[in-house]
Structures are given as C-alpha cells and as structure tokens.
Design a protein around this nucleic acid. Structure first.
Length: 203
DNA sequence: AAACGGATTGGCT
DNA sequence: GCCAATCCGTTTC
C-alpha cells in the first residue's frame, strides 16, 4: 500500500539526504477532481541561507521566500522566466529554509490527463522532464504555493520503489551559474538511464 | 508606480 | 546543439 509521506519525514534537516531519497517516490496532485501522479526521477537540493543558489541565501526574507521558512512539508511554487511554474518541497525545521526542486517525473497515474495538459504522448520524454514541464503535466500553478503536502491537493507517496546508489547520478545543478563556487556542488540527483530526466542527462 | 530578471523551454539549424 | 522568446510576479523606488 502506498504510504503518504508525513511531516516527520519532511522535517529531516538533511536536505541532501531528502533530495536523493525523493527519487522513486511518487508525486500526486488532485486538481478539479483529476488525479495525476509521477515517479520522481530528478531533483535538486537548495540548502537555505548558506547556499548562493538558493532564493533564501543570506537569510533573505521577502513575500516570495517567506514560505521557505515554514516547517518542512509545504509547497514552494514560483514563476520562472515569466512563464514556468517551478515546484519545490520545503523541508527541514521552521526558519531553516531548505528546499528540494522536483525537476522530472515519470508519468504514473492519469496518463490521459497528462497528455491533454501537455498536448503530447506520455511516451515522449519531454512530457514531464524539466521543472516547468513537471508542473504543467501535474497541473501545478501558483495556487499551490504554500500548499500543505499532507493535504488532499498535492502530496508524495512511497510505493516502495528503491534505487541503488549506483543507479543514481549526482551532478552540478542546472541554471545556477550566478551562484559562483556553489554552482559546482553536485546537488542535482537523477536516475541513470531513465528517459524522463532533463538535459544534460549524461554522467 | 515602475523596473527587474530569471532554479526554462522548445523551435530551429 | 544553440539561442531567443516571453513576460509577469516580485521587488524596490
């Protein structure tokens, strides 16, 4: 039986552990009665106030970043490039603004709904590879910002899928060149040889 | 009230 | 593989 992840799980202060542990977990959304889900295949860790790539770097608090300071177990969704909604899982304890960006999933439930939202076959890797595509495939928009991951609109389940360490690649994060030396940290995790992973997907 | 700029995507070569 | 669109929410004045 799928097990819904709880606040004790999200409260883990080790964001690198969680980013890696999310691989194989199942992200589920229910929008207007339509249930869709995907197996998480790619993530990135953002380590709060000390991470130059994080929106919360230097303890930055604005209207947008405030949700990251909540206790783990809520959604942080923001608009990127004026077009794409990017979904993060807020983790750790209150006032420690760690987050994990979900960058790709493999379609699982509600495939026909995903195909309608994306106007492409679920057999095409691009259907849900890349953070903007994940949100479009699962119907995530700004309205999900701050959503409780233990509620009934969006949550994550453990279906018992496990990946061995040698099946997981750790590489630098994508699109964070502005972060100086922190751009080099190998905090992006993805399932090797899974086609539902954004480019670059070599290791 | 106005400027800013980006955790990307997809179309084109 | 490269590169340009897109453009609105966020931040600051």
């Amino acid at each position: 039986m799928p097990l819904k992840l709880d606040n004790a799980y999200y409260g883990n202060r080790d964001v690198l552990f969680l980013a890696r542990d999310f691989l194989g977990k199942v992200l589920v959304t229910q929008v207007n009665g339509e249930l869709t889900s995907g197996i998480i295949t790619e993530t990135e860790a953002y380590a709060g106030v000390t991470d130059k790539a994080s929106h919360a770097y230097g303890n930055r608090r604005t209207g947008r970043t405030e949700v990251m300071y909540q206790p783990g177990g809520v959604a942080y969704v923001y608009l990127c490039y004026g077009i794409h909604y990017l979904f993060n899982v807020v983790t750790s304890v209150q006032d420690e603004p760690h987050a994990v960006l979900i960058r790709a999933v493999e379609p699982l439930a509600g495939k026909e709904i995903v195909e309608r939202r994306r106007n492409m076959s679920v057999f095409k890797a691009a259907v849900s590879s890349g953070p903007g595509s994940v949100s479009r495939a699962l119907g995530i928009d700004l309205g999900f910002n701050g959503a409780d991951l233990c509620g009934n609109a969006i949550w994550i389940e453990d279906h018992g899928f496990r990946y061995d360490d040698n099946e997981i690649a750790a590489t630098p994060r994508v699109g964070v060149d502005y972060a100086g030396e922190d751009a080099l940290l190998p905090w992006r995790f993805f399932v090797k040889n899974n086609k539902y992973v954004s480019k670059p997907n070599k290791f």
